[in-house]
């Protein structure tokens, strides 16, 4: 039987055989696998360096088979920037959660993006601080109950959630920004394609790429995995619509430099050194 069997699914090479430390039903496992599958498919595992954050994926360096560097909370884009600058032939990705990327690391995020660093950011947005036990995140929804918004996020005092793709798309350094989710097989496949594309843009030197993955946190949301996915569909996706927010190639440009020049064409100093 085995000789005629066809392998339809297996652990990607870029994942180690270490058991995930994620909660049951958490989408990190899927996203880790999608990243690993992209490394496999593009044949880049051997030259990839992953930068992992502080958050639930803090131990992701045990799961990825590529070289990994653990960053301080929020600093993954700065760390990834330097790794890429030292060895430009490496493929460098930062894997970050919402608190890491959009709160404590917002400055690093915005500036790595606007510099057009040739790195890929995988942004897992589950609207909560998971590792520390469910506190309000920069992406927690209005009225969402968390440990530190026990009466629901009051936007009058806690302000509004940050929509990261929308925020970053206006920066000239961003080549590609897409928001995806992994709530069903169809969307998982779409997420996989987006992650591959983000890596491809890095390899081809197009510019900074980010894939935001709208995710769940069944444990801290206090829901079953199924209900968490349902809640994601009902509440997260209307607030964080899926889609491509920036794609300079689709806009007809070779890379961020070309796109930025087109935008700045009436600014003489910005056009110096270009035709």
């Amino acid at each position: 039987m085995a000789s005629t069997g066809k392998v339809v699914f297996q652990r990607p090479h870029a994942l180690t055989d270490a058991q995930f430390s994620y909660c049951p039903g958490c989408t990190h496992g899927i996203i880790n696998r999608l990243v690993a599958e992209a490394l496999d498919k593009l044949g880049i595992e051997g030259k990839t360096v992953g930068v992992v954050p502080v958050g639930c994926s803090v131990l992701a360096y045990n799961f990825f088979n590529c070289d990994c560097v653990e960053a301080a909370h929020g600093r993954a884009p700065a760390v990834a920037t330097a790794i890429k600058r030292v060895n430009p032939d490496n493929v460098v990705f930062a894997y970050q959660g919402d608190g890491d990327l959009a709160s404590i690391g917002m400055a690093e995020t915005v500036h790595a993006a606007t510099r057009g660093e040739k790195i890929t950011v995988i942004f897992v947005n589950n609207a909560i601080y998971g590792m520390t036990g469910g506190q309000m995140a920069p992406t927690s929804l209005p009225n969402q109950v968390t440990q530190t918004s026990p009466y629901g996020r009051d936007v009058a005092t806690a302000g509004y959630p940050v929509r990261v793709c929308e925020l970053l798309r206006d920066l000239d350094g961003v080549a590609y920004a897409e928001r995806v989710t992994v709530d069903c097989p169809k969307n998982v496949r779409a997420a996989k394609k987006a992650i591959e594309k983000a890596f491809t843009y890095q390899i081809e030197g197009v510019g900074y790429s980010i894939v935001e993955v709208v995710s769940t946190c069944p444990t801290n949301w206090g829901m079953s995995p199924q209900n968490a996915l349902k809640w994601l569909g009902e509440n997260m996706l209307p607030y964080y619509p899926l889609g491509v927010y920036k794609d300079v190639r689709a806009e007809g440009f070779k890379d961020i430099a070309e796109a930025a020049a087109a935008r700045a064409k009436d600014c003489p100093i910005a056009m110096q050194g270009r035709d």
């Binding site: 360096v49 960053a71 600093r75 700065a78 330097a82 790794i83 500036h111």
Partner: peptide, 17 residues
């Protein structure tokens, strides 16, 4: 860098590489 915090973390990354 965008800040001293970012700068030292870049040093960390470059040294790690």
């Amino acid at each position: 860098a965008e800040s001293e915090v970012a700068a030292i973390n870049m040093v960390y990354g470059a040294s790690a590489a």
